[in-house]
Design a protein around this nucleic acid. Structure first.
Lengths: 116, 116
DNA sequence: TCATCGTTTCAACAATTCTGGAAATAACGA
DNA sequence: TCGTTATTTCCAGAATTGTTGAAACGATGA
């Protein structure tokens, strides 16, 4: 991940409504949640939600699939991992201040253990 | 960490200059870097940098200490961990999509192994 | 005290963002 | 075809943000 992508992802998450949507989807799992249900569960007008879903998608944080009249949105877990790895990259110059973070927060190592 | 704090932290990081500053400090380690040196290393005007340092500090992402005429800024590692934990909280409803993230990205577990 | 250096505050402008009403699109069932 | 449902696009206004010149502040050494 490069800096400009990280800024886009962070900007997408740096908004109360979008953060709530993203967390809902992170917790919901890879199968995702339909836009309408997100709208209902978080009490967000459909058009406002659509705007935020687009923002999150453009930042690469969501994936979507159409199923009939419904569009299911799911968190892009790999992207989330990329972002975390970017933030913690080379933490303390490779030192030991955050050994677990440094060890785990690399895309490759995370993916090795991930089903998503 | 509550949602509004997370939004503040993410907003602070969602800006090219501030993200560069934060990553510089994450990599520099707990001893920190003086404002002037950050300004030089990243080629940011002093007043602009000051504005961004304040934003990052208010979001709880930086700590600072004065030493003579210099002010050293350092990444607030615990806060960074809180943020990551907040994002990945209850990932996949506690399922196994991201076992390593779920396992590590909790404040308590991270702190147990952290010197910072 | 004075000059200097490191850093912060103030002020103002351009640019961007969030929001929701209204209308449009797209898929389904009758 | 028609009506309904799910979702998106268009639009406009209010609010927020990033930037930098200029000035101010605070610590230091002579």
């Amino acid at each position: 991940m490069i800096s400009i992508d990280a800024v886009a992802a962070l900007a997408a998450l740096a908004q109360e409504t979008r953060l709530a949507v993203f967390r809902l989807l992170v917790q919901a799992g890879p199968s995702g949640v339909a836009a309408g249900e997100i709208s209902t569960r978080l009490d967000i007008p459909a058009n406002t939600l659509s705007f935020h879903l687009k923002t999150l998608s453009q930042a690469g944080l969501l994936e979507s699939r159409q199923e009939g009249r419904f569009i299911y949105y799911a968190a892009a877990y790999a992207r989330m991992d990329d972002l975390i790895a970017f933030l913690t990259d080379n933490c303390c110059n490779g030192g030991s201040c955050l050994p677990k973070t440094a060890q785990v927060a690399t895309v490759e190592k995370r993916r090795a253990g991930n089903a998503a």
